[in-house]
Design a protein around this nucleic acid. Structure first.
Lengths: 229, 229
DNA sequence: TTCTCATTGTCACAAGTTGCGACAATAATA
DNA sequence: TATTATTGTCGCAACTTGTGACAATGAGAA
């Protein structure tokens, strides 16, 4: 067997578009069941590398901001009947992959990526992988809804300390775009003046020329994150 | 086999005594090698329950504050030669437990317990389990030193948000004792006035009668944590 | 009894941070 | 030129935090 048995990973892949926070969700063949993208760890492969490999396969991206946030190990996650139907619907024979029906302990990661650069690609068991707004997720299999909720909670609490907004934004962005990312993550609106003052006070932003949007109002500055050094 | 293969847990068990933060370390039979207490997950057993079971076996305590903080999955953790010597030194035959030499992915937890209530008990592979001050740890096997460091980092960052001090203190304690716990965790001294003001301001403390220490100075109040209700 | 001394509870003050609203500046349009 | 929506900035109040100071206390010493 190619993979470590009983061990899996799931990834909550965040992107930002249309003023909304979104994540990538896979739909399995025929069953109309939805789940987080995940994978397994190869013998001789570091756990973190396995997750990076999985992300590369799903998104085509190489360097991704990635953070492990929890390992889910309840027995109740184990639903062999569900897995059986997924495998059969994808044309697998159960004799070829009995280990897929075993109990799994899953290490969960979240990733922050630039929405525009992603080319989502389904895996062998899925016929599609799509962005879903957090506010409009379909019902997810197993405990994946709890995984998403926990990812969001962790993301929120790490927001201040690790300067996470940068990973969801294009290289240059306006203060308003940055604020929208923060608001989408925190799920609440922020005061414009305070936000601008605080972000500028951190000293991580570099101001560039203005962007002329063609709109009938004052045009905003563009910012980028200073390269550390 | 009784346990899930390739999956283990390690626990960093914190206690507070003599104004110092300490953790429980096991010493393996004869080898003079030190490591964190850990264990394996049984089939049909929740991961969290397995860790609680392990803690109960090592400390005799039932209700323990426990928090998962990271899952270590690098290939470099795998050192079959070391494990082989430990098993042989304990009188095991390798044929009886070949799975112990496999690669393991380890889910790490930290626990906060009341030092005085613990009765440390070694497991089958160890001849002793003892408290060690964080500042004076022996060299640890595998990646356990990194596990401890990460546990401490997580503990520090969670200190404010989750009112962790309570789990290391007896039911009633003075403000000074509480401050010493905080100082030991944070590794820095705190201003007495600010600390007292902040803690009282949180509203979680209940003040009781004074404790007459017999010392030649003003005696401090005793506090307890309010039972949520 | 009175004095001494270490420790404790509390507070005033300065310095810093944050929420909120206001103001002028700007870019396109009518 | 006037209008309008948006942006950069600032002043103010409210709140938090670091720091030192003060009086109160409990036991032993004089």
């Amino acid at each position: 067997m190619e993979h470590l048995p009983h061990i899996a990973f799931d990834s909550v892949i965040f992107g930002f578009s249309g003023q909304q926070l979104k994540i990538l969700i896979m739909e399995y063949h025929r069953t109309k069941w939805f789940a987080l993208p995940g994978g397994f760890v190869r013998y001789g492969e570091n756990l973190n590398d396995a997750v990076r490999r999985g992300l590369r396969e799903r998104t085509g991206l190489e360097d991704i901001y990635l953070e492990q946030f929890y390992t889910f190990g309840d027995v109740s996650r184990h639903q062999p009947e569900v897995m059986k139907r997924i495998l059969l619907a994808s044309g697998y024979r159960l004799e070829d992959c009995p280990w897929m029906l075993d109990r799994f302990i899953s290490v969960a990661y979240y990733a922050l990526i630039n929405y525009d650069q992603v080319d989502p690609r389904p895996d062998a068991l899925s016929d599609s992988i799509n962005w879903y707004s957090l506010k409009d997720l379909p019902p997810l299999l197993f405990d994946h809804r709890a995984v998403v909720d926990r990812a969001l909670t962790t993301l929120r609490s790490n927001l201040d300390t690790r300067l996470l907004g940068m990973n969801l934004l294009p290289p240059r962005f306006t203060m308003k775009e940055m604020q929208q990312v923060y608001e989408a993550i925190l799920g609440q609106s922020l005061h414009r003046g305070s936000f601008q003052r605080r972000m500028l006070g951190l000293g991580f932003l570099e101001r560039h020329e203005k962007r002329h949007s063609g709109q009938a109002h004052k045009s905003p500055y563009l910012y980028s994150f200073k390269t550390t050094g």
